[in-house]
Write a protein that binds this DNA or RNA. Structure first.
Lengths: 326, 326
DNA sequence: TTGTACGCGTTATCAA
DNA sequence: TTGATAACGCGTACAA
């Protein structure tokens, strides 16, 4: 691999001059004809800067760490894709890691990536009570911590839940239960709080252990055991809603004739379930894109305000909701 | 951030000794008591090696480039997850990039990652006719090139297609068509060749432009226009099969009563389609895992043989196939 | 406008 | 077994 020295020799200049000519920020210091010669030499040799040397010198890498629970959760692929496109706009690339929700593994990954000169982090894993290292630029995506100070990009959970409850009430439902996501994750918690708020009263709620179909199945059974006369269930997200489908079927209850069910996220194929899932569409790709841009902003100006970006959501009505029975 | 010099000072040794003590491969050269002192000092200071400096010196980075067409294609998340887990076993991490099937972008990404000292590549994007740079360790995942010499990990496309055709024949079908994937991708081509082989005769085939639902829709319409009396369609993959569903519905044909349809891959939610899709299950996660291990093997021993790993597949029968009409 | 010289943090080589 | 030293490739303060 050719080095900048090789390029400089071929162009008949010193390496320092070649460096200045190749770097657009310092190109102005160099004679225009010299610039041309250097650029030609670089092209002819197929020169590509050695990023290790550059990182060592500049202490930046143009790499961001992206840490998520599990790529196989269908919310994440479009988000990660948005992140990658956002990073690419600025010549950044993404180091990807999965934690399976394990805090220890998250910490290990974080440290390992930091050792690799990562310029910043996009995390989809933080628990509400996480304390994040403040020294390195970090953006939370689809998650928040209770304590402020960490920039985040999320969908409007509160408005989404209100939309769902309003739609159900409009269909005549009054006995509405909630199978919430985990308390320790901001998405689970925010949607739970919004549900309580929208219902303004002590409504039946069970918490799923995780945002998975299995956890939703189990939590729905618990809900049905305590409150058998529900006519609608607001699930913490789409996967939990699919768990509801299974739990209701196991009890011989039909959706939506006996009980209406709603989800959250509008994951791919939510429309293909039977029945199609009424849910809240969040802008997955844009959430990723914006979080990348926000991170780049933080890297450029770490002292700036820790913005919180909330993206609008949309109600998608499908077959899983219908008029309340009776 | 503390450097190895700081660790050495605290342990009362020279930086070179500290380096040897910290590196497990060279630890044997160092006095056991010295090793302990150095390790304690490192721990006390929270030392983490600067990977840029290490890369500059050793010309390795413990980072692999992973290039795929689009993470939103549901085949890829489990594969990428397997890759990441496989890389992690050896302390490697993955730089991820999407190309949308664009050869120019693929080239750009490849070069950009190479500039970042990537130790090797896992590519899911190669066209059959691609010429890959031989200098850097590369493994193809779920793809092959016609020319040998590049290690690859794929599912057994040929056996899978034979399984599907055999199952259809068993159901009484004889007029079976194929909506193939793109000719320039090995998956598309291999399954097409296997189909022709299994049917041993000139059977009706159209090629979809891409492995997408839309392309499948369009190609299915073309197939129906030429051969109206089909009783079964073997689709190039699951997404194309979903395009078949839509195309058949638009012509007022029912699946499987009028026409049976099969897919390939068994993507998540293939079981939730209506009707559930009969398809070939490929071991997505293991394909990723094995490709990571194969890459690590190549990195350790670039001169070794370019293995081709073919993983077994499984027929999954669901509602989209039924007895031939008449 | 260009060249000189140095240092970023690590590891490999050589000498002790 | 340890220390001294050089080198990886780049960017930049300083001098010319």
């Amino acid at each position: 691999m050719p080095t900048i020295k090789d390029v400089a020799d071929r162009a008949g200049v010193h390496a320092a001059t070649a460096s200045r000519a190749l770097n657009s920020a310092t190109r102005g210091m160099v004679n225009a004809r010299t610039v041309t010669r250097v650029l030609e030499a670089a092209k002819a040799l197929g020169y590509a800067p050695n990023s290790a040397a550059r990182s060592l010198r500049t202490r930046t890498s143009s790499v961001a760490g992206v840490i998520i629970p599990d790529l196989r959760n269908p919310v994440f692929p479009p988000i990660v894709r948005g992140i990658e496109d956002g990073l690419r706009e600025a010549g950044y690339m993404a180091l990807l890691g999965n934690t399976d929700g394990d805090a220890v593994r998250e910490r290990e990954l974080f440290d390992a990536m930091r050792g690799r000169q990562t310029d910043g982090f996009i995390l989809a894993t933080s628990r509400r009570d996480d304390a994040l290292p403040a020294e390195v630029p970090t953006v939370l995506v689809n998650r928040r911590t209770d304590a402020g100070g960490v920039p985040s990009v999320t969908a409007d959970n509160s408005v989404g839940v209100h939309m769902l409850v309003r739609a159900l009430v409009h269909l005549g439902h009054s006995r509405i239960g909630h199978v919430a996501g985990p308390r320790h994750l901001s998405t689970g918690w925010e949607r739970y709080r919004a549900f309580v708020d929208a219902m303004d009263g002590a409504e039946p709620v069970t918490f799923a252990e995780a945002f998975t179909e299995d956890a939703g199945f189990e939590a729905t059974l618990r809900l049905l055991d305590t409150v058998p006369d529900l006519t609608a269930i607001v699930a913490g997200n789409d996967l939990i809603a699919l768990g509801c489908y299974a739990a209701l079927a196991s009890r011989g209850l039909r959706v939506p004739e006996d009980i209406s069910v709603t989800g959250f996220n509008d994951i791919p194929f939510a429309d293909r379930q039977r029945p199609g899932l009424t849910t809240i569409r969040i802008p997955h790709y844009d959430i990723g894109l914006e979080s990348a841009r926000l991170l780049l902003e933080r890297i450029a100006n770490p002292a700036g305000p820790a913005k919180r970006i909330v993206l609008p959501v949309e109600l998608v009505t499908r077959g899983s909701t219908g008029p309340a029975r009776n």
